[in-house]
Design a protein around this nucleic acid. Structure first.
Lengths: 188, 188
DNA sequence: ACCTGAACACCGTTCAAGT
DNA sequence: ACCTGAACACCGTTCAAGT
């Protein structure tokens, strides 16, 4: 039985490591989820991780990309809903990330790779938010500032635990005030 | 020359350690600023830090309290200014914290002490924000949700570097939209 | 009471060596 | 090409011992 099982199994093993990392990073946080424990959970030695990933940050990025892709794949679900319901859906969808949002922010200062991922994520988020505003009938003034506010509020909801009623109140007010500021009447 | 120099010098040395920690934590970040380097910078051995502080998180809290007290002491400066100018002042004031905001969020998950400090900080921030809204003539509906949005946006501005023009645009829109949502005409 | 030197368990990462 | 055992430098924290 050769140890090198070809390119097919390579992708498989890589995925196994990512899956183990995802579970531990989300459950225990970036610090507590040591590479040693991730390796053990994936059934490999620590150094094997470094064969597949440049460092722990690259592994984190693989996990983030996975979660993001999954979220985007189900994005079609909310096609017809009004803006506030869509935003609430996004918050609920991303809430599983929990501490990972903070981890990304914290490590962006140290790791250029994480910093780049973070920038890309915000570009995507801003674009999606602007698109949603357009759909909701908001005039195209201040789209940049509006997207910034929208993203900041969503990030705030992700990083500061609140119950469902509070989340809804914050998002409703957010949408209501952005629409009010744009001089539009409310859109149902 | 006795090594024990009495309670007066105790406070002095404590302050020296906090000062060294503040500089290193802000300049290098929580991770990079090891207790060893903080100790060396303060002219003591590592274990001395543990004589004055329970752990590294307690040292961080001492630093945070110091910065917060300093900021509150100069808070009177902006007494007459309109809300948006006040908020911009707060952002500029707290911007020296940089990565510390993320550090607090990240460590709140692990350290109960940091978590408690974080909760207290948000209570203070919410109270101040509500007070400012009242002064600006905003009706008292949704003060909780408004404060949440205000705090999240300010935190967003603190953790995502933007130039002065962007910061101003975001804050102006924030104030404008909150006032608009409260059904009030604009207040200069 | 205050401070130190030396240790402890752990961390992310690397490297020579194996198949 | 893929994976390992063993090491490296570093981390936060502790402890017995000194004054």
């Amino acid at each position: 039985m050769p140890r090198n099982r070809g390119p097919q199994n390579r992708e498989e093993k890589r995925e196994e490591i990512i899956a183990a990392a995802q579970r531990l990073l989300i459950d225990d946080g970036f610090e507590s989820a040591s590479t040693a424990r991730i390796a053990k959970s994936a059934g490999v030695t620590v150094n094997t991780i470094y064969w597949y990933f440049q460092d722990k940050d690259e592994l984190l990025i693989a996990v983030l990309d996975r979660i993001l892709a999954e979220a985007l794949a189900t994005y079609a679900e909310i096609d017809g809903l009004p803006l506030n319901d869509r935003l609430l859906w996004v918050v609920d969808q991303l809430e599983q990330l929990h501490g990972l949002v903070n981890t990304v922010h914290a490590r962006a200062a140290t790791s250029p790779a994480i910093d780049a991922w973070h920038t890309g994520f915000h570009q995507l988020a801003d674009a999606l938010f602007a698109d949603n505003l357009r759909t909701a009938g908001v005039a195209a003034t201040d789209f940049a500032a509006m997207s910034a506010i929208g993203t900041f509020v969503i990030e705030g909801l992700l990083t500061h635990k609140r119950d469902d009623a509070d989340k809804r109140a914050v998002i409703d007010l957010l949408v209501r005030s952005l629409i009010a500021a744009s001089g539009q009447p409310g859109v149902s």
